[in-house]
């Protein structure tokens, strides 16, 4: 009986996941092994052409640049998010402080990117400010390069990292820090050696929350990047929306999925929970 109630509760979810997640992913997998139609579309015959296109220096470079952007911006985001969430967790009555972190995240991403263009542009806010402060050279081109892409990613995924970190640090027993200091540890030393290992789970979750979407990013490098900050997401979008090369888009999507799967595996490896955290099974 109970078994059936469980099925009833989860049937819609199961159906939705199968129809709109598993089947489409399988189709992408199949499509990556098909041949491209003359002017787009696919021809239903087996072909490894899409994958052979991936064995090239330029594709390797895009993968590398994507990985580099994702890793760099994740590290930078983490370095900012850690102290911020620590401060949030140690402050009483932090509703307002939390809201300040969340509110920007509610303004449309594209608008925020556009605002960054207005700030960093050759005729933008920052260059005007520098002129105002006495800078007399050529305006600086802050936009359309690798670092612009990294900065906007850091900006975008900061809240994604702060929230899981905060909820993890909040549960941490800060008494342990004092105990460590009583035993002679410095302030920083106690944070690094006592707190960090205890919030490992939160850190790994936070890293995934920033790393995964950055790996698949597409609008940000399109808007503030240049020829040397092109990412896998741009290649996928280009092949779907412009080149009509669905097999190639599918193959690149598979590569991206595999890289993400690698991330997920590392996640589960680092996050092996002790028994008490297991999802409660109904008796």
């Amino acid at each position: 009986m109970k078994g059936r109630a469980g099925v009833l509760y989860t049937l819609p979810l199961m159906l939705w996941s199968c129809i709109f997640f598993i089947i489409p992913i399988i189709i992408v997998f199949i499509y990556s092994f098909l041949a491209k139609g003359l002017y787009g579309g696919v021809v239903w015959q087996f072909s490894l052409k899409a994958f052979s296109a991936l064995f090239s220096w330029s594709f390797f470079r895009v993968s590398l640049v994507t990985l580099l952007i994702a890793v760099l911006s994740t590290i930078l985001t983490l370095l900012i998010a850690l102290p911020v969430s620590y401060y949030l967790a140690r402050t009483k009555n932090n509703t307002l402080l939390l809201a300040l972190v969340v509110i920007p995240f509610w303004v449309n991403l594209l608008l925020r990117v556009y605002a960054w263009i207005a700030i960093l542009g050759r005729e933008g806010f920052l260059n005007h400010l520098m002129t105002f402060l006495g800078y007399r050279g050529e305006p600086v081109q802050f936009l359309f390069n690798f670092w612009a892409v990294v900065i906007v990613h850091v900006y975008t995924y900061l809240p994604y990292m702060i929230l899981p970190l905060y909820s993890n640090i909040e549960k941490f027993d800060f008494g342990l820090l004092e105990a460590a200091r009583d035993l002679g540890a410095t302030h920083m030393g106690s944070l690094v050696r006592v707190m960090l290992p205890n919030i490992k789970g939160g850190i790994v979750t936070a890293i995934l929350f920033a790393f995964i979407p950055t790996m698949g990013s597409y609008a940000i490098p399109d808007l503030v990047g240049s020829t040397n900050s092109h990412m896998l997401g741009n290649s996928i979008a280009y092949n779907i929306r412009t080149a009509n090369n669905w097999p190639l888009a599918s193959a690149i999507s598979l590569v991206l999925t595999l890289i993400s799967a690698l991330g997920i595996m590392i996640y589960f490896f680092l996050n092996r929970k002790p028994a008490r955290h297991k999802v409660r099974e109904a008796p």
């Binding site: 296109a53 330029s58 092109h230």
Partner: peptide, 10 residues
Amino acid sequence: PWEEEIKIGN
């Protein structure tokens, strides 16, 4: 060549 040599790396 456009898709695989030029565009894939932007």
